[in-house]
Design a protein around this nucleic acid. Sequence first.
DNA 1: TTGTCAAGGACGAATGTTCGTTCTACCTTG
DNA 2: CAAGGTAGAACGAACATTCGTCCTTGACAA
Lengths: 205, 205
Amino acid sequence: MARMPKEHLEARRRQILDAARRCFIRNGFHATSMQDILAEAELSAGAVYRYFKSKDDIIAATASEALAELAAAFEADESAAPPGLDDIVDVVLQVDRPPLSGSRESAQFLVQVWAEALRSPLLRTKLQTVMEEARRVVGGLVARHQRHGLLSGDVPAEQVADVLMALVDGFLVSRAVYGHDGRTDSAAFRNGLRALMSASGRAHG
Amino acid sequence: MARMPKEHLEARRRQILDAARRCFIRNGFHATSMQDILAEAELSAGAVYRYFKSKDDIIAATASEALAELAAAFEADESAAPPGLDDIVDVVLQVDRPPLSGSRESAQFLVQVWAEALRSPLLRTKLQTVMEEARRVVGGLVARHQRHGLLSGDVPAEQVADVLMALVDGFLVSRAVYGHDGRTDSAAFRNGLRALMSASGRAHG
DNA sequence: TTGTCAAGGACGAATGTTCGTTCTACCTTG
DNA sequence: CAAGGTAGAACGAACATTCGTCCTTGACAA
């Protein structure tokens, strides 16, 4: 019996997933062909189909991985020292797998995942689960601030959490679409958010 | 000569674009086939190809239309009475073409457009142009608030504007992915944002 | 250590399908 | 009735996937 070390099996999977991810970022899930992935991974069709049973399988695997990284970034924040509410955007900066990409690519891939979630009920459910958990984490953060009197307790923590989550998503969109200019600099973003958070309560024209 | 009334030509275009848009929302640009569009529009291939020279042409037309609607929503805000900063999200609620969809579908389509902008330089440029203009409008709104002392003048208006723009984008993502629950209710969202904006300036744990 | 072997792994041409698009014949309209 | 509009079959290209073949690997006996 010539069974190869299981680490090589995992390495091949990684090789394929990374290549596929690069392709998906470049062209989206459905405009990249299998041949694109094969070329990027420098493997033959037969080789790839040994590790994944279909293209949809590869799509699901890469998307799930991205969501898992996003979830991990939020969960890491829960146990860590509670940051200021205006640091929330930095959470997404942790979502970044070194060998592949800078944070820009991660943001771009997440945009593709959102789009795909609109047509794949399974992926959609996974995404909703991850964001539900993230909302819980951020909601706890908000509630803590409310208890410390740093934030009005009149408004449900969840509503504020939803705003912060939207900020994260919106920042990801900016980063994905506009790239690395001032608009996607997290420090400038945090600065703007801090200014907004210290506005006088009644803002009306 | 049997030239048909020009209004019918425009009506056919509209019919095709609307059908295509519905398909694109349902399945994304590249997972919907021409046959899907033909069936949805209840037209033959020959008919559709009289009005659009390719599928990419249809994609570009629908995407441009969506961006134009987004731009119009922002520009409408510029001339109108200046709303409170926390009303900014309502701007996107105007981006909604009646016969086609509720605001949910518009949000879903915009997510698809974002994803497509990552692979189409032309669409990307258009999107950047629209958002640049929107940033100018929102930036002016922020500057006005700063002049009235409702917002600190220490921070560049653009940075605050970027945060608000991200809020809009993030709200669109929520609306697209999660649908019509509390999280996508603009009133609740505005409520949360208002709470956040009246936080004490030093928010740190 | 080294030679042998069976099974796992990789390849790439082949397959059937589906895609976007075109073409020709027919119909409708002013 | 002529020109514009429509239909739907037909086309080649490109797609995801499979298959037969060959190569590589690790286990094991000597």
